[in-house]
Design a protein around this nucleic acid. Structure first.
Lengths: 155, 155
DNA sequence: GTACCAATGTTGACGTGACAACAAAGAGGC
DNA sequence: GCCTCTTTGTTGTCACGTCAACATTGGTAC
């Protein structure tokens, strides 16, 4: 059962990655573009962007650098905090996510959501929150509290 | 719901990776060491090893190289097929998986299985096979038939 | 045997993700 | 002001995974 579940996880994420690749984006790109495109002014502080996707600073910085090189976004100095950086969505970035979003949503539906009954969806939601809060509890000891706040607020 | 599920997937796999890291192994190492340690003579042809974990040749070759450098296994020419390679588990490799396995199983239980009711476990198993076969059906078109055989045999 | 195609592995390039070290700038106590 | 601690981002290094290119060998048709 565990084996089947892990396989399902991996293959599902892999299939989504492949679908993204066909649009010239990756799931990492998409994950950043979504909060950026929803933000007022199409921009966010790197700090806030990182929090909204639960990434650590290093991972975010590397990904921003790669995406900036491809012209999907640009970084500017933050006016009110000299340490900070504001991330701006470029027209290219907006075009990219608008082109990729429908196909992505459709693929998630086709491969996953449409395979489930309403009861199964409810059950999976419940399970997800339960396991997430279990993992969060676990992470209190090593001092890693990245996603604890979010989970508390959702649960 | 989709968001919660994806987060759960990622964080769960991430937590397992962290647990593995504490033992000096990775989940990729473990995935190869399991079939190797169960094989007669503690060795397998690279081809068969790759099939048993559903990896492509490139991924397997890279991982074997890294693991060989760490002394977990060694590669030898295959006697009956000059193209082939047989992968041998070393004593170090056997010691490593025997040291890591109990903690891994325990972590899977603690973070996941123990959080589920028997009904939920049944439901997840059913869902996993259903989604897997859906993804496999999808992969027929692009000619990718890596895991189709396995899924058929399991379902 | 020869010619052609499939199967088996390896390699290099690149994107991704984790970890640790580092620099620069706020925040607070004194 | 000054010292210290925290916050914010960047960078380098490494492991992992995918893709495409490549070399070698087996198998098959002729």
């Amino acid at each position: 059962m565990w084996r089947a579940y892990v396989d399902m996880c991996r293959y599902l994420l892999q299939a989504l990655d492949r679908q993204f690749a066909a649009t010239g984006l990756s799931s990492a790109d998409y994950e950043l573009l979504v909060p950026l495109s929803e933000a007022p002014g199409q921009r966010l502080r790197a700090r806030d962007l990182g929090r909204s996707v639960h990434w650590d600073r290093s991972r975010l910085s590397h990904q921003l650098r790669r995406m900036e090189q491809r012209g999907l976004l640009k970084r500017q100095d933050c006016p009110d905090d000299a340490r900070g950086v504001t991330v701006h969505l470029t027209p290219e970035g907006r075009a990219a996510i608008e082109a990729a979003a429908p196909g992505h949503v459709e693929t998630v539906r086709r491969l996953f959501v449409d395979q489930l009954t309403p009861e199964e969806i409810d059950a999976l939601t419940t399970i997800s929150y339960r396991v997430l809060s279990r993992i969060a509890k676990e992470s209190l000891a090593p001092g890693k509290s990245v996603y604890v706040a979010t989970i508390d607020q959702e649960a």
